[in-house]
């Protein structure tokens, strides 16, 4: 069962070199309250696993600007010049991962799989150094699971069992990352009583959620 904590308590769990999945797509659906607390804590040398490096003043971009990121697995950095600067000068080591592959690698870790077989990236630099496996006459790249210590996610609503629902396109990577953290911390707008979310509507079952932080955004 989840425990309700403050954003500062969430940030204090995260240590230098922690591997941290952070939800959101261009900062929509990003756990901004928890991110702000990590910025305030100043923890450095984080490894982040994110769809995109967001904007310099929103989402994980704030961690980049504050020089707290040591390495990243990310699919798109085009909206954040600062991460490109830090990559160019060697401050951040980046593995660029196709977005669909990134999601499957994160999902694999959360669901007990060693990896997945995907055609995405065949014949490109993404395939370099990786095993190609033929299944029923088709080639696939073996993409291994991405391990994470923490998943920091953003949902609209939780009930007292920790079940989560999301808001529109703010759902994006959050339900996948929710499954993948050894410790999952969900930032939510509100917590409703048991039965306040119809079991049919639950997107993330509460079993995946270890901690909840109330968002300052709403």
């Amino acid at each position: 069962m989840y425990k309700l904590i403050t954003a500062a308590e969430a940030a204090a769990m995260i240590k230098p070199r922690s591997r941290v999945c952070i939800g959101g797509f261009l900062a929509v659906g990003a756990p901004e309250t928890v991110i702000d607390a990590i910025v305030a804590a100043g923890t450095r040398d984080l490894h982040i696993i994110v769809i995109a490096s967001d904007w310099e003043n929103r989402g994980v971009g704030k961690l980049v600007v504050n020089h707290q990121v040591g390495s990243a697995q990310v699919s798109h950095m085009g909206t954040n010049k600062e991460i490109q600067n830090q990559v160019n000068c060697g401050e951040i080591k980046v593995e660029l991962v196709p977005q669909g592959t990134l999601m499957e690698r994160v999902r694999a870790f959360g669901t007990g799989l060693g990896g997945v077989l995907t055609p995405t990236g065949l014949g490109t630099v993404v395939a370099e150094g990786k095993q190609v496996i033929n299944v029923n006459g088709r080639d696939y790249i073996l993409e291994t699971a991405i391990e994470s210590d923490f998943a920091l996610i953003r949902a609209k609503k939780a009930d007292q069992a920790g079940n989560l629902i999301y808001s529109k396109t703010a759902r994006n990577s959050n339900p996948i990352m929710a499954m993948a953290g050894k410790v999952t911390i969900a930032e939510v707008d509100e917590i409703v009583e048991l039965g306040g979310i119809d079991p049919e509507d639950v997107i993330t079952p509460g079993i995946f959620v270890n901690y909840i932080v109330l968002s300052k955004e709403k």
Partner: peptide
Amino acid sequence: QDMINAGGGFITALPGASYFDSATSFGIIR
């Protein structure tokens, strides 16, 4: 604020629209 497209632009949803997570989205694509 929770309704953007992949380019970050604001959008609306038409009647009959559906929302899904990123793994489902790329499952659709791949």
